[in-house]
Design a protein around this nucleic acid. Sequence first.
DNA 1: CGCTTGCTTGACGACGTTCAAGCTTTGTGG
DNA 2: CCACAAAGCTTGAACGTCGTCAAGCAAGCG
Lengths: 239, 239
Amino acid sequence: MTNPLVMFLSRRDDLSTDEIAALDALTLNSQDYAAGTAMIRQGDRPTSSILVLEGLAARAHYLADGKRMISALHVPGDYVDLHSLLLDQMDHDVTALTDCRVALTAHPEVRRVTERLPHLGRLLWLATTIDAAMHRAWIVALGRMSPLSHMAHFLCEMYIRLDIVGLAKDYSYRLAITQIDLADMLGLSVVHVNRTLQDLRATGMVSWVGSTVSIKDWDGLRELAQFEDAYLNLNKRAR
Amino acid sequence: MTNPLVMFLSRRDDLSTDEIAALDALTLNSQDYAAGTAMIRQGDRPTSSILVLEGLAARAHYLADGKRMISALHVPGDYVDLHSLLLDQMDHDVTALTDCRVALTAHPEVRRVTERLPHLGRLLWLATTIDAAMHRAWIVALGRMSPLSHMAHFLCEMYIRLDIVGLAKDYSYRLAITQIDLADMLGLSVVHVNRTLQDLRATGMVSWVGSTVSIKDWDGLRELAQFEDAYLNLNKRAR
DNA sequence: CGCTTGCTTGACGACGTTCAAGCTTTGTGG
DNA sequence: CCACAAAGCTTGAACGTCGTCAAGCAAGCG
């Protein structure tokens, strides 16, 4: 299988064979995490960076009263933890929402690559700024969108992100997450997520059976979600 | 006056005199924006990066029905738009909430510095990952905190961020924003922001008169907000 | 087969929005 | 220096959305 990080980056800029080789070298050591287990815990000071190869991982924040909020969902090709190359200490957990296979790369090795190949270094920087742009899109959805539009926005974003790494087909993709997880991403109660999902299904724009999401009316869903993909930086450009 | 970006970065790592000189060189051209004007508009493809020297700037997103959401507030020392060095196209506005003085640096110049001084390049990268960490903290507050705690969290964050660049004293700082702006940051209606502010004042932990915020009980406010400053990466460390 | 986990439904209450109006402060021009 | 306008703050009342509680159902797994 193709390295999903290569797919992720080459969607945004051309990669040289040198750069592709370097990326492949970064993703040699793989490791598995079962659904529900933590890859990184709050307070950790990771010494390697984690790239998702398969499965879904989430950034989970826990509040004093036990409430949980998920601030980001990571799909294959996402460098979950490039941040920790630079940051002190994790202020949240990274959890496997489904069974995951990840690649681990020791920080010094990542740093060496960014210094040897500055253009590739910029692309990894780019990956973290795309993360930030996604965070902002979530902030907007949390603050000013109806639950229905927010849910639609989430499903649009997932479709594009999964499509980039070859995990969507015919407007359809696997999304094996529970309504509990979804509630913690949308900032809603489980009960309300369930009702919102029913409303969304009732529009006929989306079907979500088992763990398969199928978008039946992309244009309708996009409009409902006011989804503009600009923030995902999908254009191939010299960076 | 000291370059606020130097203050921001040297709080996180030691800077060489070379690096400080380079930063000063990046911030030569200053420009003013009056309160309420846009520095960058949605759809722009900026060719220079913007650093806030004085005043407050916000990332403003507008929805189809005219609703506005502010996804980030930028204070002096914040590189508002380092992102645009790498990103395609702005998907939101950057607006001056108060009168602002900013520094403009052409992108090629920024890039040259990051290649010449890799360590400084990493620190600029760090600045963008701190932005991402702040975004995540906002997501958590939006999704799972009460308006009262959210407001408290916001005031805690502002205190720390302003203090770092020398703009706070004795737990007190200027914050010349309207309740409308605040509502668009917290994802609430203006009416509710007003009532929440009254509740917060009633606790006696904060006074906010005119444009001066004074924190009377830092520990109380921190607890109410469940504020942990880890995400701001305040430790000086080799990065 | 039975337990656990996740999904679904209903009833009720709380929290936050909307609408509408009055008040206060700030700034501007006569 | 006052008058007036504009912007922002504050308050009340009514409504609606969403959360909570509680229970039943469906599906997956040991």
